[in-house]
Design a protein around this nucleic acid. Structure first.
Ligand SMILES: [Mn+2]
Ligand SMILES: [Mn+2]
Ligand SMILES: [Zn+2]
Ligand SMILES: [Zn+2]
Lengths: 139, 139
DNA sequence: AATCTAATGCAACAATATTGCATTTGCAAA
DNA sequence: TTTGCAAATGCAATATTGTTGCATTAGATT
């Protein structure tokens, strides 16, 4: 069975052409993607609203995680940390290139050592570094 | 002279009722605010477009800084670090409470010491911790 | 008070997102 | 294989957020 179907099944989601198509985009593209970027990369066509609803479903199930970038566009990337439903584990850094607009998930960045004053309960930490990516820095 | 006027003058901005009203919202409310939240707190009424343009002006001048939160809504908070125009100094952490939706600027959190793999050029880092704030944690 | 530049208001437009409801479809049980 | 049901989808309508061009107004300086 192809990977997309496996993921859907393991999260108790019905297997539909739409969901498989969306998941395949995430499995192919490593960078974080906005709704419109996902739409461009899809093989089949379907309603924009279905895309929004599917992204929400995937996020709730812990399949993808949301990243809000400095440009104000919400993007999504596949979860590599095997996140449980309703609670994401993302502890990695996201890098936003202000030239090409790509967002990279930097899995292997150590972000321990960040403290916050008592009274607040931290569930997850999202870090967005802004600058120039490898490709854009060269040119 | 009231504080709002002082701030405008020190940044070479014309003193207008609109700008004073917006600045006063920021000076009163400590948490980060979205455009619509600001609009609600204004004493006088004016065009929505003027608000957007004023926020951009303030951000460019280093009076306020933009925060992109996990819910995808862009918020703004006043700069306490005396940021120069076109380049913000914000090195502090932002805390997002997923229950009440407030964003707190945590000024006294040390976020130095974050490393990223070579090849990438980092200009700024934004950290958003997500969880429950003091008030919401109690209840 | 006159002048000039900057700020504002208005209109139009665009992108993004949400909700209700009718229809279709996946899937499990019969 | 067929049937039945809950879930997924499509469509329409509406809301929110943000941008741009242009005419008008108003702040600051002389
Ligand atoms: Mn995740
Ligand atoms: Mn700042
Ligand atoms: Zn780049
Ligand atoms: Zn709270």
């Amino acid at each position: 069975m192809e990977q997309a179907k496996k993921i859907l099944k393991s999260h108790n989601l019905k297997i539909t052409p739409t969901r498989i198509a969306i998941l395949n985009v995430f499995l192919t593209e490593k960078n974080a993607l906005s709704a419109s970027q996902i739409k461009k990369n899809l093989i089949i066509e379907f309603d924009r609203i279905t895309l929004y609803r599917t992204l929400l479903t995937f996020e709730t199930k812990g399949i993808i995680h949301k990243i809000s970038s400095p440009d104000g566009i919400v993007r999504y990337a596949i979860c590599t940390d095997n996140c449980p439903a309703e609670q994401h584990n993302e502890k990695h850094l996201h890098f936003y290139c202000y030239k090409c607009g790509k967002i990279y998930c930097e899995e292997d960045t150590d972000i321990s050592g960040i403290q916050i004053k008592s009274g607040f309960y931290i569930e997850s930490i999202q870090i967005i570094a802004e600058g120039l990516c490898k490709d854009c820095y060269k040119n």
